[in-house]
Amino acid sequence: MAEIKVADISRWQNVVNFDVLKSEVDAVSIKVGGSDGGMYVDGMFTRNRDEARRVGLPRWFYWYKGGAGSPEEQAAYFIQAVGGLQAGEGVVLDDENEPTVNVDFDARFADKIKELTKLNAVLYSNQGRFVGNLQPIKDRNIGAWSAKYGTNSGNPEPPAAAAGILTVIKWQYTSRAVLNAVKGNTVDMNIFYGDVAAFQAYGAPGAIPAPSTPVVPSQPAPGDGYYTVVSGDGLIKIGQKLGMDWQLIARWNGLVAPYTIYPGQRLKVFGGATGTGSIPNNGATYTVVSGDTLSGIGVKTGHNWQDIANLNGIGSPYTIYPKQVLKLPGGAVATPKESTYTVVSGDYLVKIGEKTGKAWQDIARVNGIAAPYTIYPNQVLRLP
């Protein structure tokens, strides 16, 4: 059987050299955004999409399922954010924020995708989460893109069919691939079981335009720290409306040049429609220890990590170092916690959370672990 190598690309890979990447992989899966903590567009999506198209790398686009918005709203927001599909571009739902795949959510998401694009959505998750009655998913999805966190350390051999019902068409065999095209981070690498033509056959048969009506997801109450983009908005204009520094808004939302936004997009502004964007500091500080990340410090100290970054003038890629003294947005001086857990074979974050009595999401944040939440035996995790 033919096989091709597919790299998973998002803002975590920073600025990718797609001219080099084209010589290292056969195709890419590009993160569009997600709904974990409010619907958002990945800060590097526009560049990654445009660069992949420029160099002619076959591509799928994926959406990280979260708790903000209904399945239908998330699907519509996803397709709106893509900005229209070109021939061969496929769509994927990444469902990994619950102990098992959410069959009802996934089916409804897939139905909305089908309504908007006429395409079937591929489903991505950890192999262990493909449990329960998966028939509704099989009825709507072409196949499963599967991973097995903690043991996907390089073996490209295909796993068993997901729960014996879904065909595994793509296998994430490592989360630690090193590519010349990517500096400063590793890459999730996958095997697609088929050639490039088969990969593209899961995508659009021709151009599919974005929905003509801007997607406006369910909004929180006014003044809670979000702003919804309207037609004609730009970051500078929004900053002027709210009396805020537009560059702060960009950093809070992971936006980078060319700072693309679109109607219906919800932006974090941390102060509501009347906010000034200022971040107070009452003299509280935190001293960085080895292994710290800004997100982990945010969890330990009870502050938003973006606020900590902005207060200390730290921009992307958000580099910090041991013994660095960071100002905090108020509160008492924080002291680091030293409670740890050593990963054993078969562990995954949900399981570790059950063992330790900690929320798995907090464990991920403390250790700077992002989707697809890959861990490995003997890794030492700090506990919140």
Score class of each variant (00 low, 15 high):
1 M>I: 06
3 E>V: 12
6 V>F: 08
10 S>F: 09
10 S>G: 01
20 V>S: 09
22 K>R: 15
22 K>C: 09
24 E>S: 04
25 V>L: 06
28 V>I: 06
31 K>C: 12
36 D>R: 11
41 V>R: 14
42 D>E: 08
44 M>A: 02
55 V>K: 04
56 G>W: 14
56 G>Y: 13
58 P>I: 08
59 R>I: 04
59 R>T: 08
65 K>F: 00
68 A>G: 00
69 G>C: 09
80 Q>P: 05
86 Q>V: 00
86 Q>T: 02
93 L>S: 04
95 D>F: 02
99 P>E: 14
100 T>Q: 10
106 D>A: 15
106 D>V: 15
109 F>I: 05
110 A>I: 01
112 K>S: 03
117 T>Q: 01
122 V>G: 02
126 N>K: 13
129 R>A: 14
129 R>Q: 15
140 R>Y: 07
146 S>Y: 01
146 S>G: 03
146 S>I: 04
147 A>F: 01
153 S>N: 15
154 G>K: 02
155 N>T: 12
156 P>C: 02
161 A>V: 00
168 V>K: 01
171 W>F: 10
181 A>Q: 08
181 A>V: 05
181 A>G: 11
186 T>E: 14
191 I>G: 00
192 F>M: 13
197 A>D: 14
199 F>K: 04
202 Y>L: 14
204 A>W: 12
205 P>G: 08
207 A>Y: 11
208 I>V: 15
215 V>K: 01
220 P>E: 06
224 D>G: 01
227 Y>L: 03
229 V>P: 13
230 V>H: 06
234 G>N: 15
234 G>M: 11
235 L>D: 09
235 L>I: 09
244 M>E: 15
248 L>T: 04
253 N>A: 07
261 I>M: 09
263 P>D: 11
270 F>R: 14
276 T>Q: 07
280 P>H: 02
282 N>M: 06
283 G>P: 02
289 V>P: 06
291 G>N: 13
301 T>A: 06
307 D>W: 02
312 N>A: 02
319 T>N: 11
320 I>N: 11
322 P>W: 04
326 L>M: 04
328 L>F: 13
332 A>S: 15
337 K>L: 13
347 D>A: 10
353 G>S: 08
353 G>A: 10
355 K>H: 07
360 W>K: 08
366 V>G: 02
371 A>N: 11
376 Y>V: 12
382 R>Y: 14
382 R>L: 12
384 P>F: 05
